[in-house]
Design a protein around this nucleic acid. Structure first.
Lengths: 335, 335
DNA sequence: TAACATTGCTACATCGATTGAGCAACTTGT
DNA sequence: ACAAGTTGCTCAATCGATGTAGCAATGTTA
């Protein structure tokens, strides 16, 4: 309470008339095995309390070759899903007595590698990597440093990875759309069902398209590759693609599967320019969740990725200690 | 590249036929002042490269009594504003060569104190605290440890603090509402303008109410304390309060100032139960921003807090070195 | 009473990087 | 040829906490 500067075990030792080792043992619950008198321990603890002593965690970390830090690397925070991931990560890290160190590294592979190396240099006790652009190089950096690590969202073939069950989630969403949309048999089948957004070369999108295709084929509403509009992830692209589709069809399709929240923003922007009547005949689904989006005034189904379960599972893998490669799929929710 | 474990300056020194000091100097750009031969330096750097050497930052931190870490404490991440704050924080920290360590501490004062103490124990080089519940105890912990710190969003009287200009923002939003709403003179003035949400005992809400009141009085539309419904920050409370108001008035008010995004969620939930015609006669404003909320199908003004400017200003304070108390207001945007 | 065990504590090396002090071997000036 | 300066490097202490090894003072047993 009274010290001007930070106090060390040496200061405490001095004031308590004991040795630094005794102080260390007393303050770490190791006094029994070190055979210190209870009385001495009490005295030390009282003084430490008075001085407001707090161990220097860098010194401890250096000595013990660990840090008490739980590292997490993720691309950004402007996305609800990543925000939830980091929130859950912080919670689980705390539960393990670790201090979360969360780094936003962007989408650039080099920046991500730098961030990972930096966290390794702090001897983080574990590392969780979300949305890795080039997972392999990150994994090899971790392995070389013998750091437990997990990948989330974007998997890595060389390390434990937790991903959303994209295929299953997409299938579920597609099926629900098919059930809920009114598909008048007399209309042109080109106005039925479309998939909008994403990059078919990326695994996540590919899986979602696969799930979509699977259900659409089963329902016999898939007949044209043009029903899948993988226009990228930007809202502008999605807005444009939907606008094109609308003028081509002369109306909205009966059902629209939107691949991500960013694309959905573009969709909403386009819809806000249409008369209400035009919209109410269509059913929408989005593979991503946002509480505000659910408050739209038209039928909308959203798939919510279970950040909570994913992080839980990720820690389960980390707790196992071995960084053996494996791929775990977590089923998302339908909202 | 080839080492199984992490290599140290001692390993590098051995392989380079030099001393650890030389290695340290060579790898830190201090070789000129330390008068090392360029040739030696090159040899050391080459070997370090080959070994994939990375300094142990805990050791460095211990020695230099700093860590290269930039600490940030914030309540949670489920809020767009805090997410943006942390994003900007990470950016600025990087720009200063620091590694951001972001901790979610929740709203509990004790948990926040623990987090701050923990970051201090890592010798963070600076500390940014957002949404502090009990700023004073946090500030005193920082001062005692001689750690540069800033408060953001919730100010502290004993430290540099950056807050949104709540009064000004609220006045701006209120004025815009008044300009844009149609206020038929023949109707009952009780249906004119309302303020919904927040806790009048909290400084932020109080300031916003003050800005609201100021403009409303100037426009002569404030006549009853019942026009200010400080029902708390939860969406459920807001939904209920608006529902009550609706049944009391038999309609929506012409203008509604919603105090936060959480409350706005409740408002939207209520509105989604009303026929469209009922809504289109009203104008809404919300003191907070969410891209999806702006896509509503009715007139909506949102105030966006400038997380970017606030963090920039916060770092400007930190860079000054002195932790002299001051209160800086950053004007928000109208969207 | 010597041998041995137990209690209560301290000394010291260690983790890895940094840095002030200082030592040789040359070069230069006179 | 001797002092002084320069160049190129190494030594050793230091940061704060940890933990093994071990010392001294008792108590216990034969």
């Amino acid at each position: 309470m009274k010290s001007r500067q930070k106090s060390t075990i040496y200061d405490i030792a001095q004031k308590a008339g004991a040795s630094p080792s005794a102080v260390s043992a007393a303050l770490n619950g190791k006094w029994k095995q070190r055979r210190l008198k209870k009385e001495t321990v009490d005295r030390i603890q009282r003084i430490a309390q008075e001085e407001g002593y707090m161990a220097n965690l860098q010194a401890r970390g250096l000595r013990k070759a660990e840090s008490g830090l739980a590292g997490m690397v993720l691309p950004d925070h402007e996305n609800r899903f990543f925000a939830e991931l980091s929130q859950q990560f912080a919670k689980e890290a705390h539960a393990r007595g670790l201090c979360p160190a969360i780094v936003h590294a962007g989408r650039d592979a080099d920046a991500q590698l730098t961030s990972v190396e930096s966290l390794i240099a702090y001897s983080v006790d574990l590392l969780m990597i979300a949305g890795a652009t080039e997972p392999l190089s990150l994994a090899s950096a971790c392995s070389k440093a013998r750091i437990r690590h997990v990948f989330v969202d974007h998997p890595c073939s060389e390390a434990p990875s937790i991903v959303t069950d994209n295929t299953g989630g997409a299938a579920m969403l597609t099926k629900t759309l098919l059930d809920e949309m009114d598909m008048p048999s007399e209309t042109d089948p080109t106005t039925w069902l479309y998939f909008l957004g994403g990059e078919s070369s990326l695994p996540a999108s590919a899986d979602r398209i696969h799930g979509f295709r699977q259900q659409a084929e089963a329902a016999k509403v898939l007949f044209d590759p043009g029903q899948i509009l993988a226009c990228g992830y930007e809202s502008e692209k999605a807005e444009e693609a939907l606008s094109d589709l609308y003028s081509r069809l002369g109306q909205l399709p009966a059902g629209l599967f939107v691949n991500s929240i960013g694309c959905f923003e573009g969709v909403l922007r386009f819809l806000s320019r249409l008369p209400e009547g035009d919209i109410s005949r269509s059913t929408f689904g989005c593979f991503d969740h946002d509480p505000f989006a659910t408050l739209s005034r038209f039928p909308l189904r959203m798939v919510r990725q279970r950040a909570d379960l994913m992080v839980e599972e990720a820690f389960r893998q980390l707790d196992k200690g071995t960084s053996e490669a494996c791929l775990i799929r977590v089923a998302p929710d339908l909202v």
